[in-house]
Nucleic acid binder design. Sequence first.
DNA 1: GACAAACCTG
Length: 534
Amino acid sequence: MSGTLSQLPILPFTEMASSISQIHQAHAHLLKTGVFPNNTFVSNKLISFAVSNPDPITLSYAHSVFTHITDPNSFSYNSLIRAYANSRTPENALFLFRQMLEGGPVLPDKYSFTFALKACAGFCGVEEGMQIHGLALKLGIGFDIFVANTLIHVYGKSGHFGFARSLLDRIADRDVVSWNALLSAYIETGFIRLARGLFDEMDERNVESWNFMISGYLSSGLLEEAKSVFDSMPLKDVVSWNAIITGYAHASRFDEVLELFEDMQREEVRPDTCTLVNVLSACAHLGALGQGEWIHGYIDKNGIDTNGFIATALVDMYSKCGNIDKAVNVFRNASKKDISTWNSIIVGLGMHGYGETALETFSEMLMEGFEPNEVTFIAVLTACSRSRFLNEGRKMFKLMVDDYGIEPAIEHYGCMVDLLGQVGLLEEALELVETRQLKEAHVLWESLLSACKNHGNVKMAEYVARKLLELNPQDSAGYVQLSNTYAALKRWDDVLNVRKKMKALKVNKEPGCSMIEVNGVVHEFLAGEGMILE
DNA sequence: GACAAACCTG
């Protein structure tokens, strides 16, 4: 809906509002015409907006609307309770619920109970849930199907399976939602075997029940079981497909992601943005430019908006598949960018060696008012390191810590070690690595070792290799790099010594693995590192 | 005038 108030009567305009500014417009209009705050029915619509948009700003606005309504009814209360229940601070819903109980102008009804209980489920407030349960029983609505189903959810989520189950068994007209409430609780709390038992016992299942089982198996890392549930489903919806596709993506089985996507097309299930993002991500991992372009075409053809996730996934796909120009093009034409979209293009530019453009894009991002996060600085520092921008890199590192208060992580140090190593400041790089007591420090040592090799600094290389081997005697990286260092200097005796040592310790060099798309087919190949030993 | 439940991806 466009932001013009004049095209529609005020009530439908308010009901259809898709942004807070449209609600403000409606509010102003209602105020001018005297409908707000006297007409409760219409004024309530201003509150209802917060139910599906429960961000803090909208919520406090809705609350202020609520306090101004001349004669609030149960709908006014219930909408606001429901909005809070959907928010990130669901416990606030209970203040209003209590107001109703303590003789506010209206008494709570079964809707108030349902929403208040939903809030309890939201913050796992089982104590509060029990109290509300007691009150509901007193008022004779304890077995209302909505109230009871939400109670099962409250008890289940907090691990009170006994309560949840006995309630389930005492609901005369229990339905599939009642079963699913307990099923989803088992799955959320990681009891996949209990979930399976219940699933087999259920006298009624819907597509959601099956989807719960898929996601349950996936979060327990049981991909094959998830797939077998998926295969035996009587009816799959887009969520089922997304769930299984996500499962294969998490397992890095990207070729199967693409196969599943094709199956999905064959069964004529329309992909949504979640599907497309996952599939684009698989293309990015596989370097499958052709498939990625096909999906881009699909997005354009179907008028799917390239904002947020979709834009980022496209930028990432193009840049990882080697087409930085198209990545930039998508980025520039994105209808809406978020921080990840910016991060993604800066990473791409940096990786492709466009350090200067990467830094310019970073400045542009700051000017547009985006707050950089830790990923942004990984991107920026990577760009500096690739392009050997020593001073810029130092400046950015300082900016990150001093101005944005971001604690440098291993990735940031890694970029700095790379950068210092690239420009030959090995002593400074060494100092950086030695003064940090970091987990995963071996990544930094490895990076430093490769810098030593590139600059032919054997003395430091030996020292670093020893450090690396102290950290993990079974890791081949240190040996390989050290032997390559000797080899580059034609010190063959030393190369052989390293080789003997590796053999004695039974360390094997694992070959790297890489993939490339040729004529629309993804090929996988193993890559040695040009290790002279072999 | 409405309510409970799924995938959450870059």
